[in-house]
């Protein structure tokens, strides 16, 4: 027989869970994976320059299972260097790599999708241009309930 919580206990448990949620939401972004190596592999060891990449994520995701993500790169499409690829990594996910977008001179360097995030962290996007330069952006997102299926 499972004893039902009375109202006072239920409220206390709820407050506790809420506090725990806040704690994890404000805690530091933890790196649990090889995201730095994944970026290095993507750039061939070159350090990406911060800027030109616009990474959009909500500030807070209550459910880490479907988090809308948009990336765009401020680069001329058509003539000159165009964006070839954008790699998105999540330092606090079980696996660092999230997605790699591939572009062509026909496409506009902009894409959106929905991703899974395990915890609060700084998501990083790195763009590779056809002239061999790399640009990056990072954005912090607070995740209340992780979405990587434990």
């Amino acid at each position: 027989m499972v004893r039902r919580l009375n109202r006072r206990e239920a409220l206390a448990a709820g407050a506790g869970a809420f506090a725990a949620g806040l704690g994890s939401a404000t805690g530091p972004a933890r790196a649990l994976n090889d995201y730095a190596e994944q970026i290095a592999k993507f750039t061939g060891g070159r350090t990406p320059v911060e800027g030109r990449v616009k990474l959009e994520l909500p500030e807070l995701a209550e459910n880490g299972n479907t988090v809308p993500l948009s990336v765009a790169v401020d680069a001329p499409s058509g003539e000159g260097a165009h964006v070839q690829e954008i790699l998105v990594v999540a330092p606090a996910n079980p696996n660092a790599r999230v997605i790699r977008f591939r572009f062509s001179p026909l496409s506009v360097p902009e894409a959106s999708t929905r991703i899974r995030l395990a915890a609060t962290q700084d998501v990083i996007a790195v763009a590779k241009l056809s002239d061999g330069t790399f640009f990056s952006a990072s954005r912090q997102i607070k995740v209340t309930i992780g979405g990587c299926g434990g």
């Binding site: 591939r102 496409s107 506009v108 959106s112 991703i115 979405g147």
Partner: peptide
């Protein structure tokens, strides 16, 4: 027949994958 846009997905892409992209047909 000409490549426009693509991506390599990992397990961190949500169920029922959604993509939005833009292109310029000539």
């Amino acid at each position: 027949g000409q490549f426009v846009f693509g991506c390599d997905l990992e397990s961190a892409v949500s169920a029922n994958p959604y993509f939005e992209f833009k292109f310029k047909p000539m």
